[in-house]
Amino acid sequence: MMFKPTQFLPATDAPARNWLPALLAVLAALFMLVLPDLAYAHAIAEGDKGYIQEITGVHLVSFAYLGAKHMATGYDHILFLLGVIFFLYRMNQIALYVTLFAIGHSTTMLLGVYFNVGINSYLIDAIIGLSVVYKALDNMGAYQRWFGFQPNTKVATLVFGLFHGFGLSTKIIEYEISPDGLVPNLLAFNVGVEIGQLLALGAILIAMGYWRRTDSFLKHAYTANVVMMSAGFILVGMQLTGYFVS
């Protein structure tokens, strides 16, 4: 059975309200400490960047590894995936939503690089931060309270998947991959991205499985999504700052 966000109310979460300000402050401090790295959400490590620029021809294993590494360390992707599966219990539901996200992510990543369609990296990463905010608010039942209806969560997952894919394709374009072997290398990279996504998802599901067995899940689910929403806003703020000062 899928848990409904409207089954809990923030007003009953008194213990969470007491430690929420401190938790948000710690979260903000952590983001500020690693701000130079976080400002480039989809950036590829310098060593990997040099490797991509230098090689030519087909290198399937190497590109699959780079794709898996990117997804497994992509905190914005992981935050969004956490929001997507937060109230999903059935594996068929989880598989459906993750598949929709993967379809969107893969489509724009592959087509964006192949047709050389790039978007300003700061702006696209700001939109990706907004996807985290959107999903956290959805989990909190905000749209039902504000607008009186529930947006289609499947469509939203697919659409935001498209933006996440553009975030990666924009960075790949900047690194000027050799056209020799481009298509097979991109396909291998995408396979690696999906492998990394499955690894990240597995870790999330294990952690959520343990948490859901405790009483604290129902007590603090709302607060957890407030923290997630705050992280999304921080990401948006950092990217927009980078856009205006760059």
Rank of each mutant, 00 (worst) to 15 (best):
I85D: 03
I85E: 05
I85C: 08
F86H: 04
F86V: 09
F86L: 10
F87A: 08
F87D: 03
L88S: 09
L88D: 07
Y89R: 11
R90A: 15
R90F: 11
M91D: 12
N92M: 12
N92Q: 13
Q93P: 05
I94F: 04
A95H: 07
A95G: 05
A95E: 02
L96W: 11
L96D: 02
Y97V: 14
Y97T: 11
Y97S: 12
V98C: 06
V98Q: 01
L100N: 03
F101S: 07
A102M: 07
I103K: 03
I103A: 05
I103Y: 01
I103H: 00
G104H: 00
G104T: 09
G104S: 05
G104A: 09
H105I: 06
H105W: 03
S106I: 05
S106W: 02
S106N: 11
T108P: 03
T108A: 11
T108D: 04
M109C: 10
M109H: 01
L110M: 06
L110P: 01
L111V: 10
L111A: 15
L111P: 00
G112H: 02
F115V: 06
F115K: 11
F115Q: 11
N116P: 03
N116C: 06
N116D: 14
N116S: 13
V117K: 12
V117G: 07
V117E: 12
G118T: 13
G118K: 10
G118F: 02
G118Y: 03
G118H: 06
G118W: 01
I119E: 05
I119D: 06
I119A: 13
N120A: 03
N120Q: 12
N120Y: 07
S121G: 08
Y122K: 10
Y122E: 12
L123A: 15
L123F: 14
